[in-house]
């Protein structure tokens, strides 16, 4: 279980990295934390001819809060960094909420948040957090900069809007509304495993009335996925167990998750409904919901 040979590049600047990607295209892979790429290479399921290690590029490892409260996360920010960041806890709390679910400490200290997003595993937490919070994803290539909306980013199983010559350099999360609440819940076979199903929820609530809702599921389709009908059922409704049950019923009816050796499709569909109620209850717990 050892990686096949490759040409190793460790550019010092982003431009150099982008030039390498422009030159080698599909035969190159970007290496940041490596927590998804290296095992694939060790299993020889991935055999890039060129590995572009961006780990030494300065300026990609910061979490910055903008003037209006938006939070920008760079390509080399590790999961653990966001778990312990007070800026993230204050301005992008859904990321902080997701972090304890992400793998284990020793993975979080190397794995990058943007790497997880760019990898696009449908059972991982961060793609769902992206769908729920709708940040802007900034991709750079030697031919320029592209801003990609969250809704346009995930294309299919391990397939995203990123081109082979692009690096996802920053993700800019919009300011967290004072009325916003959120939760991330999931069920995995074992602690730290990829989820059987999970959900990231973000609501804005005025009094006890839901004014907006984003429900993003992971482990429930070939990508992380939102369920707009359930969200619409929430908007305008009051925070209550009945409201959540109604949303859950829509979720279970509309999702058609794939079966695998760990859980059946019926189980996942049922679980998505259960997690809808539990996630919404957790998100609104401090609002005094009776859910």
């Amino acid at each position: 279980m050892k990686p096949a040979p490759f040409t190793y590049h460790r550019p010092e600047t982003l431009d150099d990295a982008l030039d390498l990607l422009a030159t080698h295209g599909d035969d190159a892979k970007v290496l940041a934390g490596g927590q998804s790429l290296i095992p694939l290479m060790a299993l020889r399921m991935g055999r890039p001819g060129h590995v572009v290690d961006i780990g030494r590029i300065a300026g990609l490892d910061s979490i910055t809060v903008g003037a209006d409260g938006d939070v920008t996360i760079g390509a080399l920010v590790r999961h653990e960094q966001t778990r312990t960041s007070t800026d993230v806890a204050t301005h992008a709390p859904l990321i902080a909420t997701a972090m304890p679910w992400v793998a284990h400490r020793a993975i979080r200290s190397r794995g990058t948040v943007l790497g997880s997003i760019a990898h696009g595993d449908p059972a991982a937490e961060m793609p769902a957090v992206v769908l729920a919070t709708e940040p802007t994803l900034i991709a750079r290539s030697s031919s320029g900069v592209r801003e990609i909306a969250a809704a346009d980013f995930f294309h299919g199983y391990l397939d995203t809007a990123l081109r082979a010559d692009e690096i996802l350099t920053e993700v800019r999360f919009p300011a967290w509304s004072p009325n916003a609440v959120g939760a991330v819940v999931e069920v995995a076979r074992r602690h730290g495993d990829y989820a059987l199903v999970g959900m990231a929820a973000m609501l804005t609530v005025d009094g006890d009335t839901i004014s907006s809702a984003a429900l993003a599921y992971f482990g429930a389709a070939s990508t992380a996925i939102r369920v707009p009908d359930a969200e619409q059922a929430l908007v305008g409704a009051t925070v209550s167990a009945d409201t959540f049950d109604a949303a859950a019923a829509i979720v279970s009816a509309e999702l058609s998750p794939p079966p695998d050796i760990h859980a059946s499709a019926a189980y996942r569909r049922h679980l998505a409904g259960v997690l809808t109620v539990r996630g919404l209850s957790a998100a609104t717990a401090e609002i005094g919901a009776d859910a």
Binding site: Y8, L31, Q35, I38, D53, G55, A106
Partner: peptide, 10 residues
């Protein structure tokens, strides 16, 4: 960190 998930070069 998992030393099996890192290249020494990294």
């Amino acid at each position: 960190a998992r030393s099996c998930l890192l290249l020494a070069a990294q």
